[in-house]
Amino acid sequence: MPGVTKEQVAAARRMTAIEFLRRYRADDLVKSSARGEYELRSHDSFKINGESSLWHWKSRGIGGKSALDYLMHVEGCSFVEAVRLLCDERPSFIPQRHEEVERKRPPFKLPEKSPTTTRVEAYLRCRGISQPVIDHCLQAGILYESLPYHNCVFVGRDAEGVPKYAALRGTYTYGKQFKAESTGSDKRFGFCIEPSTESKTVAVFEAAIDAMAEMTLAGDATDKYRLSLGGIYAPEEGCDIHPPAALEEFLRRHPQVDRIEFCLDNDPPGRAAAVALARLYGKRYQVAVRLPPIEGFDYGDLAQAALEYRTKNKAKNCARAQNKYKGNER
């Protein structure tokens, strides 16, 4: 590996983030209000567990455990710089302070809006999303079609209704699926489908399309909040999980909510995260884990499978009707 050896990389990976902070950033590390948790004087949205070393930078929606992860993702080091620093080859290196990194965060901007939603609607219908659910999101202003690439844009807004987050998904149905977030997106404000009447329940999903899919499978019901986290950070076995920024912000703004349904993907990361989150929030809320019943599926897969099943049965019924008309049914 250019610049560092495999042995150096292995040595660097052995140091945990909390060990590094205690050794090299002791003046910046302070106890937070939560038991066993610490934060930084220079950036109080950064939290780290003193035992597991799991850290979470809430304003960026990222986390990790090792000192190497911390240096690269929080203090802006390159991989080689971080390895050398941890191996004490560059003790004079001074990484960027948190407030400097935060100051450089680019401003949020939504993609240009297309005057039509033809491509988005066609794509979502192919994914098994019902037209009433699509219309509901379009009318709420949390879904639109972008220009010039005609992507799906799933919008997250703050308490005043101002867009703060946008997840993008390509509308083509072949090749590798395009997925991204708009520059400057704030993960605290996730895509959320609000109920038609006040509700005390929020269903939590990894992606916006999963929220729309579950709503479709529920008969287009608008009976509860459906919130996308914009992805998950699965904890290592035996470790605690950091509260998702989108869910924490949602619960802060909706104090009436007393039930959380974790509708994550039925894969190893999704299952691990669902169990950890249910344990974390079960102390304060009623919780339910509602993973898709098929291993490896998310709710988007379920909706698409349901569409394919309906289409297949419709074709069979049409063939049967034609045979009966011709007097050929056996």
Rank of each mutant, 00 (worst) to 15 (best):
4 V>H: 02
4 V>N: 05
11 A>L: 14
12 A>D: 01
15 M>Y: 03
16 T>G: 04
18 I>W: 06
21 L>V: 09
23 R>L: 14
28 D>K: 14
34 A>P: 08
36 G>W: 04
39 E>W: 12
40 L>P: 12
42 S>E: 11
42 S>Q: 08
48 I>M: 04
54 L>S: 10
58 K>P: 00
63 G>S: 10
73 H>D: 12
74 V>C: 13
76 G>A: 07
77 C>H: 06
85 L>M: 10
86 L>W: 12
89 E>D: 14
90 R>N: 15
92 S>I: 10
93 F>R: 11
94 I>N: 06
96 Q>D: 12
96 Q>L: 13
97 R>Y: 07
105 R>I: 06
107 P>R: 09
119 R>W: 10
120 V>C: 12
122 A>C: 01
125 R>F: 02
125 R>G: 00
129 I>V: 03
131 Q>I: 03
131 Q>P: 07
137 C>N: 00
139 Q>A: 13
141 G>R: 11
143 L>M: 05
147 L>M: 08
148 P>D: 05
152 C>G: 01
155 V>I: 15
156 G>I: 06
156 G>R: 00
157 R>C: 14
158 D>M: 02
160 E>V: 00
168 L>W: 00
174 Y>T: 12
176 K>S: 13
182 S>T: 05
182 S>P: 10
183 T>I: 14
184 G>L: 11
185 S>M: 06
187 K>M: 11
188 R>D: 10
188 R>T: 07
189 F>P: 02
190 G>P: 12
195 P>C: 12
200 K>W: 06
203 A>D: 06
205 F>D: 07
207 A>M: 11
208 A>G: 10
210 D>W: 01
211 A>G: 09
217 L>V: 00
218 A>E: 15
218 A>H: 12
219 G>N: 07
221 A>E: 04
225 Y>L: 07
227 L>E: 04
235 P>A: 02
243 P>E: 10
244 P>K: 08
244 P>T: 03
248 E>L: 13
250 F>I: 04
254 H>Y: 07
257 V>P: 11
257 V>E: 03
257 V>D: 00
266 N>I: 02
266 N>L: 09
267 D>Q: 07
268 P>Y: 03
272 A>G: 04
273 A>Q: 05
277 L>H: 07
278 A>D: 09
279 R>K: 14
281 Y>I: 07
285 Y>W: 05
287 V>P: 09
287 V>E: 03
291 L>Y: 01
292 P>Y: 08
300 G>K: 10
303 A>G: 12
303 A>R: 13
303 A>Y: 13
305 A>G: 01
307 L>C: 02
307 L>W: 06
314 K>V: 00
314 K>S: 09
315 A>N: 07
320 R>Y: 04
325 Y>I: 09
325 Y>V: 11
327 G>V: 13
329 E>W: 11
